[in-house]
Design a protein around this nucleic acid. Sequence first.
DNA 1: CCAAAAGTGTTCTTAGTACACCCATGG
DNA 2: CCATGGGTGTACTAAGAACACTTTTGG
Lengths: 364, 364
Amino acid sequence: MHPAHFHVTVDVVALTITDGVLKVAVVQRDSKTSCIDQRRNGDVREIPRDSKHHWALSGGHVRYDTENINEAAARELFEETKIKVDPESLVQLGAYGALGRDPRPGRTVSIAFLAFQPMFSDPIAGTDAKQARFFSVLDLLTEPNRLEFDHELMLLDAIQRVREMVLTTPIATSFCPPQFTMSELREVYEVLWHPAYDKEISDADRQRLAAELRRYENSDEYQLLSSLKNQSARGNTESRTAQPRGLSSGSVYSRIESEFPEFRYQLAQMPQERLNQITKILMTEAKSNVPKKPEIKKRLDPANFARKVEKIPGFIEKISDSELRSSMSGTGRPAQLYRRGDIQRLDPPLRLEVKRGKGKTKWD
Amino acid sequence: MHPAHFHVTVDVVALTITDGVLKVAVVQRDSKTSCIDQRRNGDVREIPRDSKHHWALSGGHVRYDTENINEAAARELFEETKIKVDPESLVQLGAYGALGRDPRPGRTVSIAFLAFQPMFSDPIAGTDAKQARFFSVLDLLTEPNRLEFDHELMLLDAIQRVREMVLTTPIATSFCPPQFTMSELREVYEVLWHPAYDKEISDADRQRLAAELRRYENSDEYQLLSSLKNQSARGNTESRTAQPRGLSSGSVYSRIESEFPEFRYQLAQMPQERLNQITKILMTEAKSNVPKKPEIKKRLDPANFARKVEKIPGFIEKISDSELRSSMSGTGRPAQLYRRGDIQRLDPPLRLEVKRGKGKTKWD
DNA sequence: CCAAAAGTGTTCTTAGTACACCCATGG
DNA sequence: CCATGGGTGTACTAAGAACACTTTTGG
């Protein structure tokens, strides 16, 4: 008979896609309250990490006498990120209980969950960004921002699982707004199949691919674009004074100054209408300069993708008597809107030709 | 901070297929050493059960300070059933930690594993049959032999997982002898897709389907057939005196008596050659009387199945300069033998048209 | 001879791909 | 006007299903 020396914890991988980038909810715990596998880097590899770069999945102990593990997962997620999910919607990834994942006395077994129930468009509202935020998954796989060792494993397992699930269940729609266009849905699949998320890829390759995507995300234009998007989406005026971070190159601003010479002094007093004009120009400029999303596995053929998806009964429904939506990029013909259907499983499953045999499989 | 009131256990679902019937390794624990969810029936439903019908998956506590959970699973499986598996080959099904699955103080979270690494042709050798044996899965889903409540759930989850895995990995060959024919391999798929194993089926339906298969398994002819098969396979003489159990109807024996009137008195002294003759007749008779395996989901077309399987690179290899094997039923043209290939994943995955939409999905 | 299963071949249908082409928008 | 993306159509290809036919065993 073995004494009860176990800690049972839960960790939640909450995924979302914003602006074509896969992101995961992470928290920054201070060492006092951190209970799961702190400072786990020593025995695997030495990773440069400071307090600003120390992220972990949200999670914590299961209350042993009052809650089921999925309830614990939902509770921890809410407590730490303010994301509210139905415990039943959480998908269990499995138990991670390797020896030595926790240096404290006893033994910790953590059960990982996957969440994407809500549409995380503007998530973790009301939480201090220092403590919880969505973070680009690729960033968490490159150097300065690495997750705990086995949180990284959980994350990769989670992505693997999501790939399976978007082919067999309608959860891909959870990454989209309630009303979405075909290309928004298609982008979910294109993003998820970026080769950098492959589990069996070499670390060097992942670093290279991640760096590529990172360059894209960190480009001034992308930063500007997403901040403008948020601004115009919620029409919040608070960000009028907050300058988009990372903006340093002058090409965009110089154009504004040429068209609006009074910019420098009158921005604060400018009427909203004029500000919208400026925003529009900024977005246009940004869009035209954002580099192409680098080598997504397979740019899916829009026509064929749409046909395939529409053929699956109950997956999505055309919103017939509704407005069309202008496409993500602003240009192009406005698109038909869809909403998610009412089925639980895709039947038949969606099939993308995912050539798995990249490096190792032998083809004669 | 929550105190460590957790028990962490493992349970192993070890599956095999013998004589066209899916079986799982179960053990009969006496109440003193049983540590996982004993007498769990009260809160769900009242199930008639006596000591002879009280089966559970093999499993037990993880040693908190010395072993990983998959190692614990392999150890427990070996200790209780003498089945030896590589811990790395175990597939984790997930954690089962619902409140109240164990009445003892504290809380038990069990992590379920799936095993099929070895070819369980003559398994659990050397173990007292009272303590561990392979049991027909269908029998464990019908009344007198029910598993613990959440072991039944594990079992169904396991089968679900195996179905996925035989389509994407070469593990289907693990259910076959080292050298196998196409029909032996095909039978694996046919057996696994029996609708009684569907998870979402209603309990009443499952009972009905299980009863059907059960009638088949319990038929005198099937019993005779499998015992004769074992006898001739290992040529063990010990069973010469042991009469196949369940044999009561006289049709087979009467035929023997008509052809071998001396049967009643001379069986014990009979030369092996003559015994083989008798065995052959018995098998023939049995085969001709065994009712058809009832409604396997879809009798797969042998020709198309073979082509499909042979097209997957590295899945199976033809054994070129080898004997052919006469088919399972004895009659028919001898078949080509195969052995498993060396790949880890089926690429492309095997696809059987598994019409999932049986009851609930709407097809317009 | 027949029955049963293996193995081969063939036809027909479907699913999927790769395009070409027009439409609607922003600039 | 152009570029960009949405939407429709279509020809070509691959995959799969169904089935006929031959072969080889046991009886």
